[in-house]
Amino acid sequence: MSTARHSPARSIAAHAVLIAYTIIALFPVFVIIVNSFKSRRAIFADPLALPTAETFDLVGYQTVLKQGDFLLYFQNSMIVTVGSLFLVLLFGAMAAFALSEYRFRGNSLMALYLALGIMIPIRLGTVAILQLMVASGLVNTLTALILVYTAQGLPLAVFILSEFMRGVSDDLKSAGRIDGLSEYTIFFRLVLPLVRPAMATVAVFTMIPIWNDLWFPLILAPSEATKTITLGSQVFIGQFVTNWNAVLAALGLAIVPVLVLYLIFSRQLIRGITAGAVK
């Protein structure tokens, strides 16, 4: 603990930088939320003003909720995001455990192969994916989206988690084997709880692109029954007229579920860090 690290000047500088970053990052969100509560005229007259008694208008939210299927869109987004997240975490962690724990021929080649997916955008394969989905009759199903997002999320998950699993005490796993625990029990009961912070990190990184994606819902599941929230909001954006109240309200609402998921994971993250480790 050097005293320099705790000097007030440094502390102020660090906080200033962090606060500046927070403001920049939150500003668009702030603008969206503020404007979603204003009348159309007020949005264009002064986009940065807070809603006043005069300009306050819930018409955006009314439109969105009247649009009827919005709850369904929400539900679809939730199912796709949570489903993909579950599969990414489960298979990602299992693959990472195998790569970090077992010595087998082609281990490092396999790790490299799995990591390649981080660098190659999955959208390059859109046409092939669409053909595949058509052939297997999965077009316009949420399953199609979950499968694609699972594939999209796995490379990074395997990469990050295998790095963390290498750090889990060998002795603990050995003790488990000597006590007769199965490899599954060792994985689920001993290793996974110790890499929980990494799991939370992976969850956050995986979740947000899935929730925000417009591309694959548009191509693979554009039907009314399978629309996600991002796709559903597009009805308000027209070629000539855009219903800004509705778009902003939809976006404002769309933030809520991710925020909730994020809060859940960040709590896990902190709990994971503070839980007593092996030593």
Binding site: S169, D171, L172, S174, A175, G176, R189, L190, P193, L194, A275, G276, A277, V278, K279
Partner: peptide, 8 residues
């Protein structure tokens, strides 16, 4: 083991 390796 050296690191005790108790189940946390």
């Amino acid at each position: 083991f050296q690191s005790y390796a108790l189940y946390p």
